Simulated assay, not measured.
Amino acid sequence: MEQEQNPWQITGEKNVYDNKWINVTEYDVINPSGGKGIYGKVHFKNLAVAVVPVDAEGNVYLVGQYRFTIDEYSWEIPEGGCPEGSDPLDTAKRELLEETGLIAGEWTEIMQMHLSNSVTDELAYIYLAKQLLQANAEPEETEQLQVKKLPFNTVYEMVMDGRIKDALTVAAVLKVKLMLDKN
């Protein structure tokens, strides 16, 4: 028998932290076994949006940047934040142009996913972009980016051997690989 109702009881809550990107709330709870405790939740004020840009030759464009939160350099597909109430596809188009200078003529939503449902409510939309045209990149002031164009199979190998660890990129590349294998 499936359990689809919420077994958690909230007995209190307090706002712990708030800025323009996230809000952290601590809840007093009674857990599913009846024990009292606390549970923290990070609410993201943006949706996560990512794009797998694939050209006519089957190359994927990756963006490299130093990620402050993990203190290391990361190769990823173009990604960004979609403000609450905004259209994720419009944000995907903006991020692709900002980070790579590419404009896509064909867009397909390939998946939605929760990124860390144990402590956050962050939701991601991932798109496949094709029919690419090169324009000028317009990175934000917080971005010092490199762009690489690599064959899809090379990017897939980078995911499989751990050179790419970014969650959105890993999920998106594996999804596209399954799509390619099906067709």
Rank of each mutant, 00 (worst) to 15 (best):
E2G: 04
N6P: 00
P7D: 01
W8I: 13
T11R: 02
T11G: 01
T11E: 12
T11H: 02
G12Q: 04
K14N: 03
D18V: 08
N23W: 08
N23V: 10
T25W: 12
T25A: 01
S33P: 00
S33M: 05
K45W: 14
N46T: 13
L47V: 02
A48L: 15
A50P: 00
V52G: 05
P53N: 07
V54R: 14
V54H: 07
A56Q: 11
E57D: 13
E57Q: 12
G58K: 05
G58L: 05
G58I: 03
V60T: 13
V60D: 02
Y61S: 11
Y66T: 08
Y66G: 03
R67H: 12
R67W: 15
Y73M: 00
E76D: 09
E76I: 04
I77H: 06
G80M: 10
P83W: 15
E84G: 06
G85W: 15
S86I: 03
D87W: 04
D87S: 13
D87Y: 03
P88L: 00
P88D: 03
D90P: 01
D90L: 10
T91D: 05
E99W: 05
E99Q: 14
G101I: 08
G105S: 09
E106G: 04
E109F: 02
I110W: 00
M111L: 14
M113V: 12
H114Q: 05
N117S: 11
N117W: 14
N117R: 10
N117G: 06
N117P: 15
S118Y: 12
S118K: 15
S118C: 06
T120P: 08
D121Q: 08
D121M: 09
E122Q: 13
E122R: 15
A124W: 10
Y125G: 02
Y125Q: 08
I126Y: 01
Y127E: 12
L128G: 08
L128S: 09
A129H: 04
L132G: 09
L133C: 04
L133P: 00
L133R: 12
Q134A: 05
Q134R: 13
Q134F: 06
N136T: 13
N136S: 15
T142A: 09
T142L: 06
T142N: 12
L145W: 12
L150Q: 08
F152T: 04
N153K: 14
T154H: 01
T154V: 10
T154P: 06
V155N: 04
V155W: 01
M158Y: 15
V159T: 10
V159F: 06
V159G: 01
D161Q: 06
R163K: 14
D166M: 09
A167T: 08
T169Y: 14
V170Q: 07
V170F: 05
A171G: 00
L174Y: 03
L174W: 01
K175H: 06
L178T: 13
L180H: 01
L180P: 00
K182Q: 11
N183Q: 11
